[in-house]
Design a protein around this nucleic acid. Structure first.
Length: 342
DNA sequence: GGGAAACTAAGGAAGTTAAC
DNA sequence: GTTAACTTCCTTAGTTTCCC
């Protein structure tokens, strides 16, 4: 079959009858070279461009190879810029993604989530399993939705309230409690599996967390449905440091976090008031007041923590950390009593 | 034999508290 | 209110086991 006549090219002292022939000879991708040549008619530039595309850096994240940061970003619901920033900080693509999916806002199936734990919880999956699957080169979708293979390992079987489960994880999945929560309870408090599960399910119920909601980690408190996992998270929203809240709580003997916030909200300080605004001693001096005359300026009480104004720390608020402590110590006491009677 | 689930444990993040 | 030392416990790397 007669081939269409191509561009006759001279490159590096060799004659080629077409761009295709050149590409085959130099093992370069045709498309970028042809496009560049079409635009510039400069074969040197075109070859350089094709070499660049061929050598373009690829990124490997947990065994999956990506041509660009944009591709990685699409897979994990983040942006190329967020990944790029971390690469600039000396992290590998894998380290960057590991950090991003834990700490950043991600978009998945048209919804926004804060971290992988929130995505896993939303779809009722155990976070540790989703994380493991991602590391086994599964896509986010596969990690979340592929069915879990049935196991037949009698040595892993456990019994809870007379019902037998394949494994601790299988129980955890069915009851929407992260397996790490159960393991932590067993290890740190020396209780058996059944007691650990009992305690966690009771906490979930008392905190008003729906049974179908997967819990990998209990939030410290909930304010009108919004969960606050850590004090730092809550403090950031209230525009105050976590240490400041902690210090106040400690100094004033406040029981729990919501109690502390309510008490802080009531705190007031006295300040000088001029023309409807609070004025400091320093400002009064700058305004020409003397150490004698400033005392004539009227004083008024204002909130010590103005950033708390308008917040309601009572209605629809659940102190999950308090419930956690109460249920845990009550059950541990019961366990201790039972052991003493044996 | 490879891949996936289960298990274990060390490191580090977060919380607490004393000192400033 | 901040800092830093200390404690608690959560995250995840590493290992084992066994299904496909």
């Amino acid at each position: 079959m007669k081939r269409r006549k191509g561009h006759e090219i001279d490159y590096a002292g060799k004659k080629y009858v077409s761009l295709h022939e050149l590409c085959d000879d130099l093992d370069l991708p045709y498309s970028p070279l042809a496009h560049k040549y079409y635009r510039t008619k400069d074969i040197e530039q075109s070859v350089e461009r094709a070499k660049k595309v061929k050598d373009a850096q690829t990124y490997t994240v947990w065994g999956r190879e990506y041509k660009s940061l944009t591709d990685i970003a699409k897979e994990y619901g983040t942006s190329a810029a967020v990944i790029s920033k971390r690469l600039q900080d000396g992290k590998t693509a894998e380290e960057a993604i590991a950090e991003i999916i834990q700490k950043e806002t991600l978009s998945f199936c048209g919804k926004e989530f804060h971290g992988l734990a929130q995505i896993a919880n939303f779809y009722g999956k155990d976070y540790s399993l989703v994380w493991e699957r991602l590391k086994y080169s599964m896509s986010m979708e596969e990690a979340l939705f592929l069915p879990i293979r049935q196991m037949n390992k009698p040595q892993y079987e456990i019994t809870y309230r007379g019902k037998t489960y394949q494994s601790k994880r299988a129980f955890a999945r069915e009851n929407n409690i992260g397996i790490v929560c159960i393991r932590e309870m067993m290890e740190n408090h020396g209780v058996d599996f059944e007691t650990a599960a009992d305690i966690l399910l009771e906490i979930k119920e008392k905190a008003g967390i729906p049974a179908e909601q997967m819990i990998t980690r209990f939030p410290m408190c909930m304010i009108r449905g919004k969960e606050y996992r850590t004090l730092v998270e809550l403090a950031a929203e209230l525009k105050i440091s976590a240490a400041a809240i902690s210090t106040y709580k400690n100094r004033n003997g406040c029981g729990r976090i919501l109690e502390t916030l309510c008490q802080m909200q009531k705190e007031e300080r006295e300040t000088y008031f001029l023309d409807g605004r609070a004025v400091s001693y320093k400002e009064l001096m700058q305004m020409g007041y003397t150490s004698a005359s400033y005392q004539t300026v009227p004083k008024k009480k204002i909130p010590l923590y103005p950033q708390f104004a308008g917040h309601d720390f009572v209605t629809g608020c659940v102190d999950v950390a308090r419930i956690y402590e109460e249920v845990k110590s009550e059950r541990l006491e019961q366990e201790k009593g039972m052991q003493m009677n044996m």
